[in-house]
């Protein structure tokens, strides 16, 4: 096994929820696994907020910790991970916004980070997908996307009964801005829509940017194996462990610009009013 001695070996797969992160992980799985994907056994290293990971690094039952305490320990845990592990590269999914803990330390440690791949998706398309994921109405999903203090896996008053720690998202624009302007490590931005429209070009681009080297034929195979319809088909037959019971199907339609059929004009306006500034910089127009 080739041992990479650099301490900076973590690649963060960062995104606001429902922005193509799982699809990207399926692609990476196919890439590292000779074109084979099992959606219930993705090769990436899990999610940043995993309580299990925190336990393995601290010897503490994280359900007995406050949210503030977990946010102090998480960067320390990820900071020393590469030192104690021979794995050449780590891929961790993360939905948290790039933020700091109560000790003013960023929750993502730059000292062990190679780079982050930030997948961004048109918030108009996220709304219905987020509603499906949370089994909420689209209006409630938009409320979450517009809430500057929004959290995923919210555990009010430290009622710590989820397998993940609480994830501070900010509102959608705040999430994008936090990742675009906060980190002092490289963050490579990729639009979900570009990955859909020209997967070979943009998957190749983002891999190259991130220093992930694979020959073209393997990339083509991985793109084929991780086609949205194939992942959806697997979910239909085998189920998907990351889907909640109330959510009908994790892989819903995955298309771009579906918002034109799914949102009413008030909902479009609620998103546009709050996020147009960031949307315009990313080329998302009405």
């Amino acid at each position: 096994m080739k041992i990479n001695k650099s301490k900076k070996r973590i690649i963060w797969l960062a995104s606001y929820p429902k922005s193509g992160n799982t699809w990207f992980r399926a692609f990476l799985t196919a890439l590292h696994n000779d074109g084979k994907v099992d959606i219930n056994d993705l090769v990436t290293n899990g999610i940043f907020s995993s309580r299990l990971f925190l336990k393995d690094q601290t010897d503490l039952d994280s359900t007995l910790l406050t949210n503030e305490e977990t946010k102090i320990l998480l960067p320390e845990a990820y900071s020393c991970l590469p030192e104690n592990n021979l794995q050449e590269k780590f891929y961790f999914k993360i939905h948290d916004a790039y933020s700091s803990n109560t000790q003013n330390r960023p929750i993502i440690p730059s000292e062990s980070t190679h780079c982050a791949i930030y997948i961004v998706r048109n918030p108009l398309d996220i709304a219905a997908s987020l509603a499906n994921h949370n089994s909420s109405t689209i209006d409630e999903a938009i409320e979450l996307m517009n809430n500057k203090k929004a959290c995923f896996a919210l555990q009010e008053n430290n009622l710590n009964n989820y397998s993940q720690t609480e994830q501070l998202l900010f509102d959608w624009s705040g999430h994008v801005n936090s990742w675009m302007s906060g980190p002092d490590f490289p963050v490579h931005l990729i639009r979900y829509e570009d990955l859909i429209n020209d997967p070979l070009r943009f998957f190749t681009y983002i891999l190259k940017k991130s220093g992930i080297v694979f020959p073209k034929d393997k990339i083509i195979r991985a793109i084929d194996a991780s086609q949205f319809t194939k992942l959806k088909g697997q979910e239909k037959i085998l189920g998907f462990s990351e889907k909640t019971l109330q959510c009908k199907s994790f892989f819903r339609n995955g298309k771009a610009n579906n918002w034109q059929q799914e949102l009413n004009k008030h909902q479009v306006s609620a998103i546009w009013t709050q996020h147009s500034e960031v949307m315009k910089t990313l080329g998302y127009m009405l």
């Binding site: 690094q57 601290t58 010897d59 102090i72 320990l73 020393c80 104690n84």
Partner: peptide
């Protein structure tokens, strides 16, 4: 073995809890 704020060997254990 050194981990986050905790170190241990077969005979010794040291935890520094915040």
């Amino acid at each position: 073995v050194h981990k986050v704020r905790v170190s241990m060997s077969p005979d010794e254990y040291l935890l520094k809890f915040m």
